[in-house]
């Protein structure tokens, strides 16, 4: 079992606290979407209900289009594993305004807590992964500023790095496996897109 102690909900709330219009957030499908929404639904959040594997690439397209805004991608390990190649695509572009925060519970949480490849090996027939380390993978892809966060003492620095440090920044945060309430944003993708563009560009 994972030895993680950080709880994702209060953590995400802390990361997003005091968000201004300069912060654009893309949330991956599953728990990350609900976490970001509990912190406060806002037009400049683009919470995904599908498009697994696409979260980081979407953040990159946005970061390039809006170089004066901060773009923060918050997603799960399952989503990140599916879109692993996009870390190299990010590294090739070196967007200074993009930060990626992967909440690693070592599970496909949304679909019943099956082990992902980030789970340790040899944990029994239903719980074994590959021990894949996404923070090492990100660095190997060319994102030099990549680190793993495990404890409460590191959270203040984590928030500062995600919100302000020159990017691309990659942070893998080991979080607990928890059963949490679903806190859902609007589901209509066209509406989410239109309200985002309206808030950012003044036109849908």
């Amino acid at each position: 079992m994972s030895t993680a102690t950080l709880r994702r909900r209060p953590l995400v709330k802390t990361i997003l606290e005091g968000a201004t219009d300069d912060l654009l957030v893309i949330a991956g499908l599953g728990s990350s979407n609900w976490d970001v929404t509990e912190a406060g639904d806002r037009p400049l959040n683009m919470p995904l209900w599908g498009a697994m594997g696409a979260t980081v690439a979407m953040g990159l397209g946005l970061a390039i289009a809006q170089p004066t805004k901060r773009v923060l991608v918050i997603t799960g390990d399952g989503d990140m594993l599916m879109g692993m190649g996009s870390l190299a695509t990010v590294a090739a572009q070196q967007p200074h305004n993009l930060a990626i925060c992967v909440l690693d519970n070592e599970k496909f949480g949304e679909t019943g807590n099956q082990a992902t490849h980030t789970s340790a090996r040899n944990q029994g027939p239903t719980d074994s992964g590959a021990g894949a380390d996404l923070s090492v993978i990100a660095r190997g892809c060319g994102i030099a500023d990549s680190a793993t966060i495990r404890g409460e003492a590191e959270v203040a620095q984590l928030v500062a790095d995600l919100r302000r440090k020159s990017g691309p920044v990659f942070r893998l945060v080991k979080v607990m496996v928890e059963k949490l309430e679903f806190v859902m944003p609007p589901q209509d993708g066209a509406h989410l897109k239109d309200r985002f563009r309206q808030a950012l560009l003044g036109q849908a």
Partner: peptide, 16 residues
């Protein structure tokens, strides 16, 4: 190639 579709969505969200 699927990254291209996601990137296009992000670019459009950002007005490009």
């Amino acid at each position: 190639e699927e990254e291209g579709v996601a990137l296009a969505a992000g670019a459009w969200l950002g007005g490009q």
